[in-house]
Amino acid sequence: MTTLDEQGHTGEAGRVTLSGGLEDEPQLDFPGPSTPYLDYHSIDVLLSLHHPRSDTPAEPTFYVLGQVKELLFQLLYRELCAVRELLDGGEVAQAVWTLRRTRRVIELLTETWDVLGTLAPTEFNAFREHLGQASGFQSYMYRMLEYVLGNKNASLARPHDTVPRVREQVQAALRAPSVYDAAVRLLARLGADIPAAVLERDAAQPYVPHAAVERAWAALYQAGPGDSMFELAEAMMDIAEGFGRWRALHLLTVERIIGAKSGTGGTTGAQWLRRAAEQRLFPELWSSRNLL
């Protein structure tokens, strides 16, 4: 008879027993009205959230990919919050490990544009009116992701001011230090000459690059590979570059599908995205290259 531990887990011995000892044969019978996989991932709930607004064949692709992006935004936000805490605790190696996984998630997120780019302009136009004023920049998880990455723009939190529970989450993300703030604080704790104005700045305000931070990153690079902080710098550059790719491909996909037309949320569409694509996360990590 299979026994469970205190958390209800079967453990390896239990899994062998449940398999019936037959190699390469899955268990096919389960008690109750569900299966463990369905319950673990809440599959019935997840699939019930699929409600396209039209009968247009291409809309499900657009709709589902939007939901997938939201899940990945949330995952990235949680991972980067964990990195921030690890850096505050001086756990650089674990922060680097988490950043490596985070970069892979960003790559997966970026690939959603490859799928959306298969929508022909006429296919998108067939259901575009059903979007109304809905636009991706109204995504609160994306806004929180940008905030933890350091792109602080308080005005873009306004669409969520009247949404219960969401406003508090977005405002907390706006006021919290970014993962880059945590990295700069770590540089200071390790002896870098970082001015108090940088370390004690209002985290809700846009980050202003400082020459002292640029010099600190350049000095770290000059020390060469083999140091954990060197690994951190490169892992953070992976994130910054990966997010830059996400923005650039977003722009290209929009231009491919709707050209230079205005966005559904009232923006100038491609023009708005082009300005966003020119932004660089973790600015002194980029500019420090000029000193090497």
Score class of each variant (00 low, 15 high):
286 W>L: 04
240 A>D: 05
253 T>H: 08
157 A>S: 14
32 G>A: 12
82 A>S: 09
250 H>I: 12
61 T>E: 10
92 V>W: 14
254 V>F: 15
116 L>T: 04
209 P>G: 14
16 V>Q: 15
246 W>H: 09
50 H>L: 15
233 A>S: 08
17 T>F: 02
291 L>N: 02
290 N>R: 13
271 Q>E: 14
231 E>T: 03
13 A>F: 01
287 S>K: 03
18 L>I: 14
265 G>S: 10
3 T>N: 10
136 G>T: 09
249 L>N: 09
26 P>N: 11
143 R>I: 02
225 P>I: 01
28 L>P: 01
292 L>I: 04
110 T>R: 14
40 Y>Q: 11
145 L>H: 05
82 A>H: 09
158 R>S: 08
12 E>Y: 14
129 E>Y: 03
86 L>E: 10
137 F>W: 04
202 D>N: 14
244 G>H: 08
186 L>I: 05
204 A>E: 06
231 E>V: 03
265 G>P: 10
282 F>N: 02
266 G>I: 05
20 G>I: 03
64 V>T: 10
120 A>V: 03
222 Q>C: 02
281 L>F: 11
270 A>I: 04
228 S>R: 13
221 Y>D: 07
127 F>S: 04
81 C>E: 13
237 M>S: 10
53 R>K: 15
271 Q>S: 13
267 T>Q: 11
200 E>A: 09
45 V>R: 11
228 S>Y: 06
126 A>T: 04
62 F>N: 07
228 S>Q: 13
51 H>P: 00
256 R>I: 00
133 Q>P: 05
13 A>M: 12
275 R>N: 12
264 T>F: 03
148 V>W: 01
147 Y>Q: 01
205 Q>W: 03
122 T>F: 05
156 L>N: 07
154 A>Q: 04
231 E>R: 07
128 R>I: 08
211 A>W: 07
7 Q>W: 09
146 E>M: 00
242 G>A: 12
96 V>H: 08
225 P>K: 02
126 A>E: 12
25 E>C: 04
30 F>E: 03
151 N>L: 15
151 N>T: 09
80 L>V: 03
199 L>M: 04
230 F>I: 03
222 Q>V: 02
162 T>Q: 12
262 S>E: 12
269 G>N: 04
292 L>A: 06
10 T>K: 06
272 W>Y: 12
57 P>Y: 02
165 R>K: 06
249 L>Y: 07
75 L>K: 15
190 L>S: 06
133 Q>Y: 08
54 S>L: 10
166 V>C: 08
89 G>D: 12
160 H>I: 02
156 L>K: 10
51 H>V: 06
210 H>I: 08
59 E>F: 04
148 V>F: 13
108 L>W: 01
234 E>I: 10
266 G>E: 07
51 H>A: 11
71 L>A: 11
94 Q>N: 07
212 A>H: 07
161 D>F: 14
195 P>Q: 11
56 T>W: 03
216 A>F: 03
96 V>M: 07
36 P>H: 10
21 G>I: 01
260 A>D: 13
137 F>Y: 05
47 L>F: 05
65 L>R: 10
271 Q>A: 15
152 K>T: 07
58 A>F: 13
152 K>F: 11
132 G>Y: 15
186 L>A: 06
105 V>I: 06
144 M>P: 00
249 L>K: 15
216 A>S: 09
